[in-house]
Design a protein around this nucleic acid. Structure first.
Lengths: 232, 232
DNA sequence: GTTTTTTTATGATATATATCATAGAAAACT
DNA sequence: AGTTTTCTATGATATATATCATAAAAAAAC
């Protein structure tokens, strides 16, 4: 991780958007910008928590490992998003790992400074609380899906979520470039099973593929698959 | 839900423990105590969020439904614990359901009053944030387990967690009285599978059963099963 | 205190998903 | 530019877990 001071503009990230304007010089003075290379691990589960990160540019995956080669990707963090905030709370080690999916730049600040930020900016703390509530909701929805939803439906859910997060290119493909293995890790299944389910979705004309790119061709049907399937 | 004003002491719950003493009279004036009967549903997913709850006495399960008879129990809330706080954030419907596992009493306050509490008690907001961070960590650990851990290990994990949360009786049994179906819903598997895995654990002398009661007889071995199984 | 309902127990069977195996294609390194 | 290395593709097989079926036991309702 190459250190590059003063790269970011203290305007675009979650912290800078929600902190008081008066606090931004302090942020400017305390943050550090780091260049990360594709595949580089920024921190891993079990590491002592030293600070919190924001994505300035690029794409970060936050994941939990399972026996050497398996992992579950919890979420993708893109420009502006915080990560490493799971290091907050009453434990002092990261419960997750974070790695760069592509070359990029991240912003880092020490836990001490971040805690000062929380103390000083009550509105920021409140917004962070709301953000945590949203993440918790999403996390528990995924828990339920992992327990009860078939892989095919989870693939549909993952693709819908990726399109919602990253939008589409001019040609209509989901505007994110991740490997099939990472997609499988995001779904919480093996590469092979996800591959097969994608084939089924292609045959049913809900999605179409061009090399690594994925296009959702029947958004309603796909969304229906990813829906709760329950009620009452 | 029978309404019973002024039952609780404004001392034991998460809010009362963390709010400023000066704020407690306001809590006293704005809270409502409700009696709940075993099996009673307090709110269910999709209901509009009107407020937040605390358990004064009894046991509450927080769960997500899946097609009529299946559910995933997210957590058990006992005396002092908050529930319904997943209604915070940027959506206005509960993402989970809550039901009484046994007869009990809960404390309720409107979302408006709760938000005022957050605004006034910055320390409480901070503590709530830390609580959310802890819950998020736990939720994501369970996500990973549901994706990759076999049912037997998840049963071991669930039993370990239940003993940590509820302690043991004088005879050494886990001090909680839940049905096998609820245990299965907590594990995220079917009743039958959990039943079989429990039998295996009994045969391996890690646990022993007496009617509905469960005793952990080899805590280390059980904890080992529920551990990450990964590293490096 | 009897009847009805719910919970527990257990075997047989089906099925979804993981694992193994192998090969070609693409990307990354030197 | 050539050579490892990683990623993608796909079939065959194994296995974990869910589903179905049925009965006994316990709890709840009347």
């Amino acid at each position: 991780m190459i250190q590059k001071i003063n790269l970011c503009d203290t305007r675009s990230c979650f912290l800078c958007r929600n902190a008081m304007a008066e606090w931004l010089p302090a942020v400017q003075a305390n943050k550090i910008n780091l260049k990360v290379k594709k595949g580089e691990v920024i921190f891993k589960e079990g590491d002592p928590v030293t600070g919190i990160y924001f994505v300035y540019q690029g794409l970060i995956k936050v994941y939990k490992k399972w026996d050497a080669e398996k992992e579950l990707i919890i979420r993708f963090a893109r420009e502006g998003a915080a990560f490493g905030h799971r290091g907050l709370g009453h434990k002092n080690v990261y419960p997750v790992s974070a790695a760069a999916v592509e070359n990029g730049t991240v912003c880092y600040m020490s836990l001490d400074f971040f805690e000062s930020t929380l103390k000083v900016n009550s509105n920021f703390t409140y917004e962070l609380l709301m953000f945590f509530a949203d993440e918790l909701r999403e996390s528990e929805r995924k828990m339920r899906n992992l327990a009860h939803m078939p892989v095919k439906n989870r693939v549909a859910d993952a693709l819908t979520a990726l399109q919602a997060q990253f939008g589409i290119t001019e040609q209509g493909f989901i505007n994110v470039d991740i490997s099939r293995q990472d997609l499988a890790s995001y779904v919480g299944a093996t590469y092979e099973t996800v591959f097969r389910m994608m084939n089924e979705l292609v045959n049913e004309k809900l999605i179409s593929l061009l090399a690594k790119s994925i296009m959702i061709t029947n958004h309603d049907a796909l969304a229906k698959l990813s829906q709760d399937a329950n009620f009452q």
